[in-house]
Write a protein that binds this DNA or RNA. Structure first.
Length: 271
DNA sequence: ACTTCGACCTGTTGGC
DNA sequence: TGCCAACAGGTCGAAG
């Protein structure tokens, strides 16, 4: 499912139903996700209260007195609140059942997501400890990106998608941000000027903020709770528009592969 | 230390 | 209409 806006939207959606609720049961129907779902959850999380839901990059962190449940949605994961007795379907892999009769249900057809547990210091977890800055925090600014990029030969698009540099910039929004900033995605990160980074950082923040504001509904197969299609394409200037015309100059948009990922840009506007 | 690429999975799409 | 290859929002970890 997710890029950062979709994860943030999910967090906001589930938090009111989860925070300060006691866990009654954990149901694992399929433990083979990206990593195996640990066996200790019924021992360590059941009976505890989840007191906060936080997000770090694209990881959702459900904290209890005993430890933290770590959830990543991978490529196709979803989380929603259901009545605990709602019949589980094919890809409904994990339920966190609450004492109020509701359950947090994790669904993930491709199983690239994960449900993990950290008993002690969440920031020291191997998946989290090396993560870069949050793109919407103040410490993500052009001076940081500029300095981090010196000596790097990788394409700027690949660079801003590197979670050790900055978290949460996925393929769709990397394409969109570079269009907004007027930067060719293939340009080596280390050869881009400070002035360009001064444009790029606000572009990333703007794209992500706007996507969160509309509920992160940028996904091809997104439908809201009433079954209406989301805003896919309506808010996208380049992603998924290879061969179509640039909205700014009318030139044909070029589609290439960069780091095995679909990349679309305007050869006139982005250089 | 940096860069590239395979791997993990299922479902959907587009070409023949 | 059917079949099959290619591709899809992520990202880790091995290999070069």
């Amino acid at each position: 499912m997710p890029e950062l806006p979709e994860v943030e939207t999910t967090k906001r959606g589930i938090s009111p139903h989860i925070e300060n609720r006691r866990v009654k049961e954990i149901i694992v129907r399929q433990k083979k996700l990206r990593w195996e779902v640990p066996n200790n959850l019924n021992r360590d999380l059941v009976g505890k209260i989840i007191f906060t839901v936080k997000r770090r990059g694209k990881y959702l962190l459900l904290a209890s007195d005993n430890g933290t449940l770590i959830i990543h949605l991978g490529m196709s994961g979803r989380l929603r609140i259901v009545n605990k007795d709602l019949i589980a379907e094919k890809h409904d892999h994990v339920d966190v059942v609450l004492e109020n009769g509701k359950a947090l249900r994790f669904t993930d057809p491709r199983r690239f997501g994960c449900v993990l547990w950290e008993a002690s210091d969440i920031d020291s977890h191997p998946l989290l400890k090396n993560l870069g800055t949050e793109p919407l925090h103040d410490e993500f600014e052009s001076d940081y990106l500029f300095k981090a990029s010196r000596g790097r030969s990788i394409a700027i698009k690949t660079f801003i998608m590197d979670s050790k540099i900055v978290v949460g910039v996925g393929n769709i929004y990397a394409n969109e941000s570079l269009f907004l900033a007027g930067i060719n995605p293939k340009r080596p990160a280390g050869k881009i000027s400070k002035a360009k980074y001064d444009k790029l950082v606000p572009s990333i923040k703007k794209i992500l903020r706007e996507a969160i504001a509309v509920g992160g509904t940028t996904l091809r197969d997104f439908t809201n709770s009433s079954g209406e299609p989301g805003y896919f394409k309506q808010s996208l200037n380049v992603y998924g528009r290879g061969g179509e015309n640039c909205i700014r100059c009318g030139n044909g948009l070029k589609e290439i592969r960069l780091g095995q990922r679909s990349t679309v840009y305007c050869t006139q506007c982005q250089n």
